[in-house]
Design a protein around this nucleic acid. Structure first.
Lengths: 209, 209
DNA sequence: CTCTGCTAGTAAGCATTGCTTACATAACGG
DNA sequence: CCGTTATGTAAGCAATGCTTACTAGCAGAG
């Protein structure tokens, strides 16, 4: 009663079980928080053995989290880009900021994963290992994609700033520095509402629905 | 070869071993990060058995972290209040903000503990349990003290704002709202420099020494 | 057709961790 | 002098991350 082999070759799948594991992991994360998420729990929820996830996420939990974060950043970007184009470019910046904070508040557990330093560190490790030639690019592909989409999300914040500058509505300057400051403020705001900030006790009565 | 009893009664101590455990835990936290910190490691570093810490930190790791966070907030407050009194009250606000960010950047692992949601949650649990009468106040004394000093830290940020308002140098308004926004911005900035923020890859070249 | 190799699972187990339980020892108070 | 309390130890449980050996099915080479 061991070993199942390449059974499901008929379907369109390929990475079907991989997606199933990630989906269950995401479900557990949303409902029970990061502390409730474990490789075993995700595997069990997907009807697999404890070791199965390591076939699809060779680096184990970090890579699983990276996968989830990649999806999460995608959702965050989509939410930001859903902001309507206003007549005043400044209004669009505000709209995007509001959507950013709203997304964080509505998905606190996911948001914490997105900006966990456990995610930032692997990115550096990947850089080092890749530059040292210890590992082929593809084996840490997930981290590379994560770094890319993270920059894309940042770009989604910087672009409207640049547009506002080109329209002459916002003072000229380094759009990336402006973006950095904006990202810091939004990130800090989410932290406050998620109950991690200094003013956490006071900031619980927001109506972010 | 088991049991040592109340041996060290001659010293001035009382909570000597407790402080020793916390000190080792802090050392491990600073050097190896939160992932490297464990109750057992702290106990071993203090020359004790694995179960010893639970005598002093009945709630285990969460309470140990709360203790560390309490010390950490004390250091943060001290650092902020070291800001010189300037002629311009606005300058003092900036000075305090700079010291806040500097502290976070220089103590990243501690800072992450200070604002971990694992710390925020116990505070709520404590509130609920206390209001439900399930637990005497003193048994969660550590969390109560933590909540208090956290508000003190926030107060250290709000006070100079109020002073600036009274001096007429800063537009009047709700100082707590201003403080909340300031806390959010500073928290977000630290996050960026600590490598958790959206612009993380770009913000590494600060000279915070 | 057969052999070889690859893919994708399983079962079992190791080390670590948080925490609990049972126990031992020493100081203190009546 | 004896019970109580404070403070430690040893041992062990359950959960977790991860590894190792193994198995089963499919695909292609000869």
């Amino acid at each position: 009663m061991a070993g199942k082999g390449r059974v499901e070759s008929a379907g369109v799948d390929e990475q079907d079980t991989k997606r199933a594991i990630a989906r269950e992991a995401r479900r557990i994360l949303d409902s029970d928080g990061l502390d409730g998420l474990s490789v075993r729990a995700a595997a069990k929820a997907a009807g697999l053995s404890s070791a199965a996830p390591y076939r699809h996420f060779a680096h184990g939990l970090p890579e699983l989290l990276a996968w989830i974060a990649e999806e999460g950043f995608g959702e965050l970007i989509a939410e930001m880009e859903r902001a309507p184009v206003e007549s005043d470019p400044r209004g669009r910046i505000v709209e995007i900021g509001l959507r950013y904070v709203g997304f964080g508040v509505q998905n606190p557990n996911l948001y914490r994963v997105l900006f966990s330093h456990r995610l930032a560190r692997p990115l550096e490790f990947f850089d080092e290992m890749f530059q040292a030639g210890e590992i082929p690019y593809s084996s840490s592909e997930a981290y590379a994609r994560l770094a890319e989409i993270k920059m894309t999300a940042f770009e989604a914040l910087v672009r409207p700033i640049r547009e506002a500058q080109e329209a002459g509505v916002v003072r000229a300057g380094d759009a990336e520095d402006f973006g950095l400051a904006l990202a810091a403020m939004l990130h800090g705001l989410v932290g406050e509402f998620i109950d991690e900030g200094l003013g956490g006790r006071q900031s619980r009565d927001g109506a972010w629905s």
